[in-house]
Simulated assay, not measured.
Amino acid sequence: MKIPYFSLLMVAAFAGSAGPALAEKADRDKPMNIEADALRYDDVKQVSVFTGRVVLTKGTIVIRGAQVEVRQDPDGYQFGLVTGSTATPAFFRQKREALDEFIEGEGETIEYDGKADTVKFAKKAQLRRFRGSALGDEITGGVIVYNNLTDMFTVDGNANKGVAGAPGGRVRAMLTPKPESGAAASPAPAGPAPVLRSTTTLGGATQ
């Protein structure tokens, strides 16, 4: 029986961490810095649209895309929509609380909900966990939704159907056991460390 949609607790699915390790909490209170080629701001709707090689940073959060739309609701919560280019997907990266680990992801679009503190990667979505510079785990699917508060994610493989170059209707996962306590972490692969290429979070705020 094929199960195209599933939910896993990241501390279990991502190689059995001993207790939840959430996204960096301090990111919520850090200022948001954005660089882009152009900006269009609508004061009435409280919406800012940045275009052209956009780079957004907020604490440990790094977001990259061809366009980033940021809006804020009356309660001060921020919401973001990141759109990638034809050649380069939208990218998101954030440090995990109290660990030398990072969560990063990609998709043709990335949506951040600052109120729910969730990040949604859509179309050719990927979610990865790095221990230092070494890749630990990797998940791919049509749509991936990651919850920063619960450290849980869901993956929908069927959402990839009809997307060129994507494995339609399938979820793929590569999970690596966590090194035992006190054991040296696996050395990083030979060659340059993974480069930040772009993927949800504007932390407590969004993109």
Results as ranks from 00 to 15, higher is better:
Ala125Asp: 02
Gln126Arg: 11
Pro167Trp: 03
Gln72Gly: 04
Leu39Trp: 11
Ala125Glu: 03
Gly19Ile: 05
Val62Arg: 07
Pro192Asn: 07
Thr109Phe: 05
Gly165Arg: 10
Asp75Trp: 03
Arg129Pro: 01
Ala205Trp: 06
Tyr5Thr: 15
Phe79His: 02
Gly114Ser: 03
Glu104His: 12
Arg64Asp: 00
Phe92Pro: 00
Leu56Gln: 01
Tyr5Ala: 11
Asp73Gly: 07
Ala183Gln: 14
Ile34Asp: 00
Val44Arg: 07
Arg53Asn: 15
Gln126Lys: 15
Arg131Ala: 15
Thr199Gly: 08
Asp137Cys: 03
Gly169Thr: 10
Lys178Ser: 05
Ala164Cys: 10
Ala38Ile: 03
Asp113Ala: 08
Asp137Tyr: 01
Pro4Ala: 15
Thr200Phe: 13
Asp37Met: 10
Phe121Ile: 10
Leu56Val: 01
Val143Phe: 07
Gly142Tyr: 09
Asn148Ser: 07
Met174Asp: 06
Val11Ile: 12
Ala15Cys: 04
Glu104Ser: 13
Asp100Pro: 09
Thr88Met: 12
Ala36Lys: 06
Phe14Gly: 02
Thr150Asp: 02
Lys178Val: 11
Ile63His: 01
Pro189Lys: 12
Arg172Tyr: 09
Arg197Met: 09
Asp27Trp: 01
Ile103Cys: 03
Pro167Thr: 09
Pro194Asp: 04
Thr51Cys: 04
Arg93Met: 09
Ala90Ile: 06
Ser181Gln: 13
